[in-house]
Every structure is written in structure tokens, then in C-alpha cells.
Computed example of a mutant assay.
Amino acid sequence: MGLLDNLLGNGGQAASLMGVASDLLDKVGGVQGLVQVLQQHGLGEQVQSWIGTGENQPVSGSALGQALDKAGLGNLVQEAASKVGMDPDTLLGHLSDLLPAAINHLTPNGQTPEAGASSGGLDLGSLAGLASKFLSK
């Protein structure tokens, strides 16, 4: 399956979810910024596992929502949920599944990309596939 098939396979929700993740990365200054925000607001151990080479620790949608709220990004979640036609809890649930895999993918050598690099070598095809995988659960 190609990128287009992945994006359309879930009624465009995978594309919407990737758009939300991309907006979040842009808002906080890329992967390094998101990692710092989540570490500073209670998810340090989980985030470190996503960067490292071991197994990714899970994060709940509510814990992710609390961290983003503490960082002043709660409005972004509300706006994004409205834009994609999901309630915020559902969106956070999908993001809590997607972000560990995405950050792991974007930090293959256990290093975050330079500050301001929103994509860090972002492979949209594989990340869209990740989004589709999590939406089909």
C-alpha cells in the first residue's frame, strides 16, 4: 500500500492525525521541542524510552493531555479535535498511540534532531502508515 492508500484507508483520519502531530511539532519547535515539553511536564521517563533503543513505554491519552495542558498547549488539542471532527479525548488517545512510535522513528540513533527541525527527516509515508495502524485499532 502506498502513501495515498494509507491516508485514504481511514476516511482521511490518518491524514488528519498526521496534520495534528505536524502542527504540534511546529508549535513547540520540532521533535526536540516536543521532547522537552513532555519531559518538563511529567512524561520524562516515557519520552526517554521513545528516544532510546529499548521498548517504548506507553502513555495514556489523559496523561498526554495533562502534559500538554501544563505546557499551555491545551487549546491546540481543542482546536485540532474540532478541526478533525473528534472529541479531544479520542484525539489524545490516538496521539498517545502515535507519538511514541513517531518519536521513536524520528530518533533512530537515540538522538533528537536539532532544535527547530520540525521533521527531523520525517518520512511521511511511514508515519502515515503508523497513523493508519493506530486508527484501525
Results as ranks from 00 to 15, higher is better:
S126W: 00
G93I: 10
H41W: 06
G44K: 04
Q66A: 15
V35F: 10
P58R: 12
G54N: 06
V31D: 08
L130Y: 12
H94A: 08
Q40W: 04
A80F: 07
S119D: 10
G30E: 12
G33K: 03
P113W: 00
S96A: 15
L64W: 01
H105E: 15
G2M: 09
M86W: 14
L91Y: 09
Q40I: 05
G74N: 10
A102H: 06
L4C: 08
I103M: 05
V84H: 09
V35T: 08
L34H: 01
S118P: 02
G110N: 10
G44Q: 11
G61Q: 12
G120R: 05
N75R: 15
M86G: 04
P108K: 01
N75E: 15
Q39R: 15
A102G: 08
V28M: 02
D97R: 11
I103N: 00
G110K: 06
L43E: 02
M18K: 06
L25S: 08
D97W: 05
A102W: 07
G110H: 09
M1V: 08
L130G: 01
D69V: 14
G116V: 09
D23L: 09
V84K: 06
L95H: 07
N104W: 00
K83F: 08
D23C: 04
V20R: 04
V84E: 06
D23S: 09
G52P: 01
G42N: 09
S22Y: 12
L34F: 01
P100G: 03
D97P: 01
D69Q: 15
L25C: 07
L25F: 12
F134N: 08
G74C: 13
N56P: 03
V35L: 13
G72H: 08
S132R: 09
H105P: 02
G116H: 07
L95E: 10
L124V: 03
S126Q: 11
G2L: 11
A80Q: 15
Q66D: 15
P113S: 03
W50T: 02
G2N: 14
G120H: 04
G72R: 04
L3T: 07
S16W: 06
N6F: 07
W50Y: 05
L127Y: 02
L106M: 15
A115D: 12
